[in-house]
Structure formats: C-alpha cells, structure tokens
Simulated scan of single mutants.
Amino acid sequence: MQISTQGAEKPQSIESVISSTIDNLFNKAEGQGTQGTQLPTGTGAVDFQAQQQPKVDDFTQKRMDGANMASQLDLSEGAMKVMNRFTQGGQGEANILEKPTEANCQRPASDKRNADQIINDNPVLKNLGDQKDIKKDQLKERCGDWENEPDPQKRADAAYKAAKVLNYIDCTKDRDGDERDCAGDGNIEGITSDGDARHGTEAGMVKDFAEKGFDAICGDGERQLDQTTDSHVRKDGSNKDNFQWFVGEVGKVLSKIPILGTVWGPTLEGFGEGRSLGDSFAKAAEGYGKGMAKAIPAILQGPAGIARLGIREGIETAVTEGYKAATGKSDPPPFS
C-alpha cells in the first residue's frame, strides 16, 4: 500500500514513514538532532510534530507575550529591569504592562516565595515610607497586611498584591504619555516635606488607590500619570523645590512677553524642570539654545524680522491662553 502526497517527487510507503519516524525519535533522544524524511500531511497522514509540541501553561504564555510586548516599547532602563524580573525571572508582580485588577493581583499557586522574599525582591515595596498621604493603613485594607499578618500564606499574598500595584505605578509614563527616566527606580515620588502627596505624581496615585481602589489607577490613560495643574509637579511626576518652582514661574511669565521671552522664557523654565542643580543648568542651557535658535534669524533680518517675531509670539500667546481658558488643557496644538 502506498501513501502519496501531491507535488512530492516520490511516494513513501507506510513502512518507510514509520522507520523514518523511529529513527528521528532515537536521534532526538541521543541529542543528534533530526534531518529525517518530512512526514506527509493531508488525508490519512499523521501530524507527528503537532502531537509532540509541549503544552505551555497560561503563566508561561503570559511571560512570553510580555517579553514580546516589552521588546517593541521604548521602556526606560529602570522599567525594563522590573519587566525582566517577570519575563525572565517569573515574578508575576513585576509585570508592569498589565494594569492591576483584583483578579490579576492574586499570587499564583506556583509562586512559593514567602512575604519577606517578595518584599526584598521589590524595592518599591521595601522602601515604601510611612508619610501620612501614603495611607499605609488603607493600603493594607486593600491588599492585606504584608508586615504583620500572622498567617504566612496571607502575608505573602498581601506582599504580592501590594508589590504589583506599586511596581505598576512606579513604572508609569509621564502625564503626556512619554517614558520617564525615573520610572522603575524603586521610589514612590511626589511626597512633600509635610507628607502630602501631590496630584499627578506616583504618590498621588498611591493615595488615590488606597482611598478609591483599582479604578483610581491611571485614570487618565494606560500606564500614565494623571494630569495636574499643580505647578510644583514636573512633567515626570517629581516635585520641584520652592526655588526651582519660583525660577520656572518667572520663566513662564517672561515667555508671554514677545522678544524678551524668546530666549529667557525657555531658559528659566528649563532651569525649573531640572531634578538636581546640574540637571537644572543643563536644561537651562538647552532652553537657551532653543530660544537663541529662534531669535537669531529674526535679529539677522533687522527691525522687520524682530517685529514679525514679536507679532507672531503675541498671537501664539493669545491662542495658547484662549485655548487653556476654553478647554482647561495646558498644551494646545502647535501653532502654525
């Protein structure tokens, strides 16, 4: 009896197929690989390869999917390190691409770590402070008591749940949807010296979760800090000190004055956005360079060029302020 496959050069007998299959199986067992005869497919044929494919459990599949997604995103170095703990290390609470819910914050049965191990694996939980707006008692009501629960399993469950929420918040994008350099640094930012959590920061989102639950996480978008009108909060969600805030506010005022604000507006605003003194000077220099790049062509054109720049900036300011007043949004579309 012969089994034929359309398009094949030579038909194979059942005996040769069985013999070839047995040879391939022995070669695999001996670690020699296989280059045997390809099995026929179609009516009457057996798809041996499909039968031999190992089954992948749901958690492993989720890790594979997460690795694929992360490779296509421009995650910060810190956020990628956290994500790698999930995709490579199998720590489910480190899956920062999965928005926390009550269901997916349950510790998998395969996770045999105790609470102390989970806490030590997650700096963002280990380093969590006791400031008043962190709302630690309310967090424990949401997640369970990862510090004092007498039942070891319940304590581990609580640590896993809290770590998953905090990792997600720590690795959010900024309020405009851009990746943050400080994401995944293991520190919940946005607490003032008085222990208050500013809105639009990581601390503000932790407070909202403690008070309102999972629906409060990233209310303005996926993995993104909330919008805020608080001028003490930088775009990346960190707090400005009072001096930086003052310099930045002066820059904002100057930026509304035609010509004068062309250079000094972005210079002082850049200084106010710096996270350290060195970073402030670097951002100020960047703002100065952008301002000069805009001002020099107008200056070279003489009085007429300067006048045109002044008129244009005056119109831009009017449009910007009108847009903000009408919509409540701070970033209008680019003026053209």
Rank of each mutant, 00 (worst) to 15 (best):
I118T: 03
M83E: 14
L73G: 09
A79G: 04
L125V: 09
D74N: 14
G129F: 11
I134P: 06
E102A: 15
C143Y: 00
K99Y: 03
R63A: 12
L125P: 10
T60N: 11
T41N: 13
Q72T: 12
T43L: 15
K99Q: 11
R155G: 11
A50S: 14
T60K: 08
V46E: 11
K55H: 06
G44K: 06
D57Q: 09
E98D: 15
Q131E: 14
Q106I: 13
R113F: 01
G129H: 04
K161N: 07
I134C: 13
I96Y: 00
D74S: 14
Q53K: 15
W146T: 00
V46K: 09
G89W: 11
K81S: 08
P152Q: 04
M80S: 14
N104I: 01
D151H: 10
V82G: 13
N148A: 15
R142Q: 07
Q52V: 11
K81N: 09
K154Y: 03
E102V: 13
G42A: 08
A159Y: 10
K135I: 00
Q51E: 11
K136F: 10
L39C: 06
P123I: 06
N127T: 06
E93R: 14
P123S: 09
Q153T: 15
G92I: 02
D116S: 14
S71Y: 08
P54W: 01
S76K: 06
K161F: 01
N120Q: 10
F48T: 11
D111K: 02
D47C: 08
E102F: 13
W146K: 07
S71W: 01
A45S: 13
D116Y: 03
A156P: 09
D137A: 15
D137Y: 05
V165D: 10
D151V: 09
C143T: 13
N95V: 05
P123G: 03
R113V: 01
R155D: 10
K81E: 08
D65I: 08
